[in-house]
């Protein structure tokens, strides 16, 4: 019992720290981005902050379960439901803005998701949750409601996922352009990874599935971090630098090359 819950605590803590650090580093490097990409950048910062804010009470919840304090466990579960309900808001803004480039339309659509999220919270608090059921690996709550709330929740998550897949599809269809896989595709895959496994984490009544989902959320966070701050091995493999242009030879190499051309 102790080992499994400890592992769960470590995973939740790692997700919290890595996502909050990622959000902080992204925000700190905001000046490096162009004016056009800034709205999407702030949406990303908000998204990763919300992921961190979701897993911070979850970490405390797991510690409470480990220490045998069900009241704190329940309070933290109810607190973590708040950021969880609004996690799709910055994501929808991000995808809409990247796809259509209109800030106002993106704001309106994400505001709709904010209303959906708020009504989910209303439903959630009015129905309550059954639990905690502490197992070897985790502490499980089940929403005390019929299937409607689950379907509602899936709606809240499936639309943004479909948007991400649509954007990825668009990128693959436009295969005539050299896309920096590392900088464009990898963050999207990471976000959809994190987003979908957070949903699985919250709705599953099975502890093994929950812990597996958390591992995947952690993998997604690391993946997103590597996409924006690539390591040498990624640079070599995917030509991963800050943008597409940097795949070209640098100025000194170019001058040398130009000198060698016989006119």
């Amino acid at each position: 019992m102790i080992t499994g819950l400890l592992l769960n605590i470590i995973i939740c803590f790692a997700i919290t720290i890595s996502s909050l650090t990622f959000a902080f580093v992204l925000a700190r490097n905001g000046g490096e981005h162009s004016e056009k990409s800034k709205p999407a950048l702030w949406a990303l910062v908000a998204f990763w902050t919300i992921v961190g804010a979701t897993y911070l009470p979850t970490t405390i919840r797991m510690i409470a379960a480990y220490m045998g304090k069900p009241t704190i466990d329940t309070i933290m579960y109810n607190i973590s439901a708040i950021p969880f309900a609004f996690i799709s808001v910055p994501l929808v803004f991000f995808i809409m803005y990247v796809m259509i480039g209109n800030k106002n339309i993106s704001k309106y659509v994400s505001f709709m998701f904010m209303i959906f999220g708020a009504s989910y919270l209303g439903l959630f608090y009015s129905s309550g949750a059954i639990g905690p059921q502490v197992t070897e690996l985790s502490s499980i709550f089940i929403v005390n409601s019929d299937i409607a709330i689950q379907i509602y929740l899936m709606g809240l998550f499936i639309f943004p996922t479909a948007m991400i897949l649509g954007l990825l599809l668009l990128m693959f269809i436009t295969s005539s352009i050299t896309i920096s896989i590392h900088r464009t595709v990898l963050p999207l895959v990471a976000i959809s990874f994190v987003f979908d496994f957070i949903l699985t984490d919250f709705i599953t009544p099975v502890d093994t599935i929950q812990i597996a989902s958390r591992v995947f959320v952690l993998v997604g966070t690391v993946q997103a971090f590597l996409a924006y701050f690539p390591q040498t091995v990624f640079n070599d493999r995917f030509c991963a630098k800050n943008n597409v242009e940097t795949c070209e030879t640098d100025e000194n190499d170019k001058t040398e090359y130009e000198d060698n051309i016989d006119v």
């Binding site: 992204l26 981005h33 162009s34 056009k36 990409s37 800034k38 999407a40 950048l41 990303l44 803005y97 990247v98 796809m99 480039g101 954007l167 668009l170 990128m171 436009t174 005539s176 352009i177 896309i179 920096s180 900088r183 464009t184 963050p187 597409v244």
Partner: peptide, 17 residues
Amino acid sequence: TFYKKVKRMSDIIERMP
């Protein structure tokens, strides 16, 4: 058509942080 396709994609990439 090719220009429009390239432009649309480059706009998307430009807006990606």
